[in-house]
Design a protein around this nucleic acid. Sequence first.
DNA 1: TTCGTCATGTAATGGGTTACATGATTAC
DNA 2: GTAATCATGTAACCCATTACATGACGAA
Lengths: 225, 225
Amino acid sequence: MSRRSGILEFAVLGLLRESPMHGYELRKRLNTSLGVFRAFSYGTLYPCLKALVASGWLIEETDGAPEGVPAAALTGRRAKIVYRLTAAGKEHFEELLAHSGPDAWEDEHFGVRFAFFGQTSRDVRMRVLEGRRSRLEERLERMRTSLARSRERMDDYTLELQRHGMESVEREVRWLNELIESERAGRDQRPTGSAAQDKNQSGDTGGLPRHRGGSRPDPSDDTTT
Amino acid sequence: MSRRSGILEFAVLGLLRESPMHGYELRKRLNTSLGVFRAFSYGTLYPCLKALVASGWLIEETDGAPEGVPAAALTGRRAKIVYRLTAAGKEHFEELLAHSGPDAWEDEHFGVRFAFFGQTSRDVRMRVLEGRRSRLEERLERMRTSLARSRERMDDYTLELQRHGMESVEREVRWLNELIESERAGRDQRPTGSAAQDKNQSGDTGGLPRHRGGSRPDPSDDTTT
DNA sequence: TTCGTCATGTAATGGGTTACATGATTAC
DNA sequence: GTAATCATGTAACCCATTACATGACGAA
């Protein structure tokens, strides 16, 4: 029993804060909204949902049935379960959002956490952003010394790989700097276009450049496949 | 039995091509030379080594003992095993390097493969680089359409996350373009400084800028801890 | 009536980590 | 003599995927 996954749990609670959903739809949202960095399959999701129910953070409702009716009540035909966040679940999510976990955890799951920044305070956002930045800077330092130590022994391709890796991390740090700056500047709730070095900057006093290069969205399905 | 890991197997063979090593040293090399992208623990490495021996791609030698003496021969005290690549192993490595695997595999392990580019032909390098580029471009396309479809439903932070993710992939594509260009230009064996937009470019006719910002390397240990 | 997609689940497998157990060798 | 680091290994997890099994429902 219990298939806790940490970040999946977190993301599920976060998505259900907006509105109740089927597991199926939940997975779709998971793989579009957050899916650039992370993807989940049913084999992970469904067991996780059961575990969250067992913890009292979610309740199951049969699709369309009034609240409180257990999923098993619909005998004969297959269950269609809508998951809804409980008050305890909401509380738990907010704790996770604010307290967060050990360094490694925060590091690995930064992307997903960031996606839920809209649901927390500026203080928390600052703490998370600065935490990540300082960890990336440490890592950069380690990479630098390690590279200096073993430079001679490496061939050009290995070296180029290291260089490129470091450059990527450096760029990530710069991105964080911009985000932190924009939080500090007080344009609350919105990471500004300053992060986007784009032709497309017109007013830039709060708000991202919209619809750069994309066609109008159409309301069809969401499967990234 | 058999704990095959694919990429670890590949990397081990590649490192042992240079010279025989202890498992312990192998792991260190694994986590410095290739370690920006990948790290391995003993729990993975040692079983993998045993499997490679079973396949006939490596042989074990007791430290210092003449070739052919099995590790078990040193009774009483603990085995110290040096792994050496066999002819069959060398052959197998070269096959892996050239043929490569399915798309997903190539994608996930590109970094490690790249680190061994020095040991293969320009043809193979080009194929791998172009393969990765086209897969990244497909991914970019998917991200673009998916973003266009669900833009309205996302808050600013999620949006910024997507934008940043896409930008990173775009940058990766540009890097690949530069590498491909430099391969094509024929400066064989060396990815050129053109990939590094750095103040530090002096001669740039083949070769990376050396020792930028690092102190002299000292020959101490390698543990990144 | 059949195809796509909605919808829920499980079993087998994969690929890895952490923590531990054990002991030799080196440097101080 | 004692601390660090070299060196090998294993057992107990963890987190996830793939492939499969099952079935409802709407549209062509």
